[in-house]
Amino acid sequence: MRAGTGRLDAQVQIVSRETGALMAWHRGAGGWRLWRGAHRPPGDAGFATGAGLLSQHRGGREALLLELRAALLERRGPLVTLNKPQGLPVTGKPGELTLLSVLPELSQALGLRQQELQVVRAPGKETSGLVLLSSCPQTASRLRKFFIQSRRAHRPTATYWAVTNGIPAASAGQIRAALTLQHTDGVNVVVPVKSPSRRDILEGVKRTLSHFRVMATGFGCALIQLQPLTAFPSQLQVHMMLQLCPVLGDHTYSARVGTVLGQRFLLSVESTKPQRQALDDALLRRLHLTPAQAAQLPLHLHLYQMFLPGSRPTDAPIELRAPLPQYFSRTLQGLGFCQQQAPSAAAPRGQQREA
């Protein structure tokens, strides 16, 4: 496909947490178009200027609590789902402001007096999207077992969206890599391990697997659907780096991808350190960013869909979805992936129902 066409190869939709309206790409007579049924939700991290500089408000516990209440997506019995802002850690050291640290206040604010909320599933600090909470320990335990069993059976239960700086060579496929955590310069980074031995596996190296599908391409970037089938820190970021297509806003692993005469290649872990992602001039102009603003760009990785088991074995899976952050949507628009509005949209079909 020619750069800049913004063609979408899949039918997808999400739901606005503000109005309940659909935000969907739909194939019509004029091709793929975007129908958006919501404005920016309150408390959502977004671009503060026309140039696209991220501006997140972090004013302490009270401000975070208000932001999380605004991020409430759904309550279903003991289950509560939130749309986590990018940059919010789930756990941390004592005294740090995290999702866990404000769960007691959030439980009270939601009128849960008997049991405090506990985290069942949540994306990492730099990833935005769905957080699943439960006020019932038994329900939380049942769901954790469901996720573990699904991973063992290689059944995807979560779908992420990512914008990558680079386009994968294949339009869809699997990414397999053995990964391990390595402590370097005071931080933990994930590094791939080639041909791990049995001893490596016993010492913490893990074989990881993800499905990917390219949904749109343009201007040297891609919108990717990712479904991890294993769980490892920064797995999706590292998997896309290994495809020579680091996630936009990845200021940890993108430095491992080098370019000579337009050809990309992997640099050795020993020769690279985490550093701010550098974007070429053409992409900076397309996204209306200065190099300094690009160095602060948030990670464009969003957990947008999750499947849960029904109450009974014969029930259909429960589907949860989270709207994209404002900065993510603006990037899609800047890359030409979002076109003019269309009047209707159909529900997605296909491999998303595998869970």
Rank of each mutant, 00 (worst) to 15 (best):
Q326W: 00
P325I: 02
L335E: 01
L335F: 03
P317C: 12
Q339E: 10
C338S: 07
G350P: 15
Q352F: 09
R349A: 13
G336Q: 07
L320A: 05
A347R: 10
A345Q: 12
Q340S: 12
Q341H: 12
Y327T: 04
R353P: 04
P323R: 10
P317Q: 12
Y327H: 13
T331H: 02
T331N: 04
R349M: 12
Q333C: 00
L324A: 02
Q339K: 14
T331S: 07
Q339D: 11
L335N: 02
A342H: 06
L324H: 05
G350A: 11
P348C: 09
Y327Q: 06
R353F: 15
Q341K: 11
P317N: 11
F328S: 01
R353M: 14
S329N: 05
S329E: 07
P343Y: 06
E319W: 03
R330Y: 09
Q326G: 09
L332D: 03
L324G: 01
Q339R: 14
T331W: 01
P323S: 08
S329C: 07
R321N: 09
A342W: 02
F337I: 03
P323G: 08
R321C: 13
R330T: 08
Q341L: 12
C338L: 14
A346Y: 09
G350Y: 09
Q326T: 06
F328L: 01
F328Q: 01
Q352D: 11
T331R: 03
F337R: 00
A346F: 00
C338A: 10
P348L: 11
A342L: 11
Q340E: 15
R353L: 14
Q339A: 10
I318G: 02
P323D: 13
S329Y: 05
T331C: 14
Q339Y: 12
P317W: 10
R349T: 11
Q333D: 08
A345Y: 11
E319Y: 05
C338G: 05
P317V: 14
I318N: 05
A347Q: 15
A342K: 01
Q340C: 03
S344E: 11
A322E: 05
L335Q: 01
E319F: 04
P348G: 07
Q333M: 08
L320D: 05
S329R: 09
P323Y: 10
L320H: 08
L335Y: 02
L324W: 03
Q340V: 04
A347F: 13
F337P: 00
C338T: 02
A342D: 07
A322H: 02
S344D: 07
L324R: 02
L324Y: 00
Q340M: 05
Q333E: 13
A345T: 12
G350H: 06
Q351D: 11
I318D: 03
P317L: 10
Q340G: 09
P323F: 05
S329G: 09
A345K: 10
L332H: 05
A322Y: 02
L332C: 10
R353V: 15
S329T: 07
Q340T: 09
L324I: 00
A316L: 15
A316W: 12
A322D: 01
C338D: 02
L332S: 05
Q326F: 05
F328M: 02
A322G: 06
F328H: 03
Y327G: 03
A345G: 14
G336P: 14
P325V: 00
L335C: 04
P348K: 09
Q326R: 03
G334S: 04
A346H: 06
A346K: 07
T331E: 04
Q326I: 07
F328K: 01
Q333W: 00
A346W: 13
P323E: 15
